[in-house]
Design a protein around this nucleic acid. Structure first.
Length: 271
DNA sequence: AGGCGTACCTGAGGGC
DNA sequence: TGCCCTCAGGTACGCC
């Protein structure tokens, strides 16, 4: 489900909604989705105050006053939903619920149960091996070129590799490649400087615009208040197999690369 | 090293 | 209606 723009939107909403609240209790209805253990969360979290909420790649990071953090990956269908005091029951498919002292709740809900919530101790290096943040100033076209250099992997699955660039998922990889007119199968290291620069600009641009619009809601994604995003209406290529390409009129195809659906136009994404 | 298939799960939607 | 198949925004693992 959520990629960088969706997780960023959720994190911003959570930061507004729960910063400063104190955790009173933790309910874990599906223990296998929490690390290191449900018992540890239930023992440690009560009394903790929320210091802030951020994002790293596709991880939402709930920072606590003690320096601990709750690091959450939503995988495909995970949701983080804030409920006001007096909510009639947990949000559907809630696996973990934080109860705050003011009567409000944070529900970690996930129908497919792939998502995970991990308690991290102060100073614990949980983000080792995660790649560049594409919306940081340091992620320049030159830096992008250095990341791609010499890589034979096709550019599309390469963009999905979280060890290289963090936060890009299937939707925005397809959209950026389409916008830059780059063929998904092109070896990453084979792109000319001009096409690299174009792809860099498209990737950063599409992510930034999606953040501005609050992400893409296709099947499941909603923000921390349960609201849908606004970018799904802006999608040019994702999910449009059989339709005419919005740029050249060619037919959009869906192929499979590294097990993922890949939407592109054979006519105008030629190299 | 890195590519590939598979596994993890549930739900939605299409074909018949 | 309902059964069966495929597909889904992600990643970890084992196997070449």
């Amino acid at each position: 489900m959520p990629e960088l723009p969706e997780v960023e939107t959720i994190a911003r909403g959570l930061a507004r909604a729960i910063t400063g609240k104190t955790i009173e209790a933790v309910d874990v209805t599906l223990p296998r989705v929490v690390l290191p253990s449900a018992a540890r969360l239930k023992r440690v979290l009560p009394g903790e105050r929320i210091a802030g909420v951020g994002r790293r790649g596709k991880f939402a990071v709930i920072e606590l006053d003690s320096g601990r953090a709750l690091v959450i990956h939503l995988r495909m269908t995970g949701r983080l939903i804030v409920q006001p005091p007096g909510a009639t029951g947990p949000y559907p498919y809630t696996n973990v619920r934080l109860r705050f002292s003011d009567g409000s709740h944070l529900c970690f809900a996930d129908a497919r149960t792939f998502g995970r919530m991990r308690l991290v101790e102060p100073g614990e290096a949980w983000a080792d091996g995660i790649g560049d943040e594409p919306l940081e100033p340091a992620f320049t076209a030159e830096r992008f070129g250095a990341i791609l250099r010499g890589r034979p992997t096709p550019i599309k699955p390469f963009l999905l590799d979280q060890r290289r660039i963090a936060g890009v998922g299937n939707i925005y990889a397809c959209e950026a490649l389409w916008e830059a007119q780059v063929r998904p199968t092109a070896p990453a290291g084979s792109l000319s400087a001009a096409r690299r620069a174009r792809l860099h600009a498209s990737l950063v641009g599409v992510l930034r615009k999606a953040v501005d619009l609050g992400g893409s809601s296709i099947d499941d994604y909603v923000d921390a208040e349960g609201m849908e995003g606004g970018f799904q209406g802006e999608l040019s290529i994702y999910g449009r197999d059989g339709e005419a390409c919005a740029r050249c009129g060619g037919t959009v195809v869906r192929t499979v690369m590294a097990g993922r659906g890949t939407w592109w136009c054979r006519r105008c994404q030629r190299r």
